[in-house]
Amino acid sequence: MSDRAAKKIGDDATLRVARMVERLSDEYAAVLAAETGRMETHLARMRAAPEDGDAPRAMFRIAHDIKGQAATFDRPLAGAVAGRLCGLLREAAPGDVSSETIAAHVALLRRVVDDRLRGAIDADGAALLERLDRAAGLR
């Protein structure tokens, strides 16, 4: 972004944008809760039929959406969790990734929703991500 562009928009518009993002971030709580609920449904499907590839594919799509949106709406921890899940599921065949590993990611998303975790990833958030990576065998 150039200084020229910033000057053209002006402080008022920048302030308006900040207010709009704040409002939309509040509204995103419901979206993230619904998406996490869908994740939990697909996880249950996956556990019931591990050979079925539809549930992991659906989970990948949801995780991909969350990865692309959550940080914009002040939930970077949810974005980081979803990004990790995307990475695990992207090329995976059914059964490649254990349901326990996926469940750990979904559980952390649920925690973000239930505890209303917002803002930059702090030391606690970093520790949760580290634990998640260990569970996935990435550390």
Binding site: R4, K8, I9, V17, A70
Partner: peptide, 13 residues
């Protein structure tokens, strides 16, 4: 993930 302010700045430009 997009930054709202960045998006608007670039769109405006």
């Amino acid at each position: 993930p997009i930054s709202a302010v960045d998006l608007i700045h670039r769109a405006a430009a």
